[in-house]
Amino acid sequence: MKQSETVFLIDDEPALLKALGRLLKAEGFIVEAFESALAFLNAPRHAGSGCIVLDQSMPEMSGMELQQRLVQEDSALAVIFITGNGDIPMSVRAIKAGAVDFLTKPVKDSELLAVIRMALKKSKEMLHSKAEFNEWKQRHAALSKREKEVLVSVAKGLPNKQIAKELGVVEQTIKVHRGRVMSKMGVDSLAQLVIMAERLRLK
């Protein structure tokens, strides 16, 4: 089966870079190999989903440092660490920072491929939720001032009567605002609205 997803390989050992590249190409991945983290950063950024198979111990910039840079950039690329002599504290730190897995050399192909697939899936999800988030942000921006106030109060779980009292209007008005907010934000239920408010940090 042919796959068209991209895998980035970053390792300071050229022979290993070559071997892993062969393996992944044989599986139909698009492989981009870099001999250092800086070389990767200097290359044009990939916009779509994808994953990085990253060597932890490298000169100049370590794998962990690169991962931090990517987190800062809010990148959708999923990171898999691969290391010669990793220890538990190191792997815990990597996973906490969002790495998909922390593998030890030498890695079996089946294991590596499974992790890569998982990572690609995660990358797609990240890309999707990023897009959804941006959509929500735009919709929220389109709300009127009063609608935004009503949205915050509804998300807090206050009843209409109390919201009306706080905003100094009649309950009926609130009901109208609420219906408009739901339709403008494109949600069907109160639960969906609350989750959205949470993601947008509207409290």
Partner: peptide
């Protein structure tokens, strides 16, 4: 421990190459 690292590197190269060959 430092030698383990030294040995793991060529082993990883060998394994990945061999498995790539299998797939080819």
């Amino acid at each position: 421990s430092s030698l383990a690292h030294e040995i793991n590197q060529p082993l990883a190269i060998i394994l990945s190459n061999a498995q790539a060959a299998q797939r080819l």
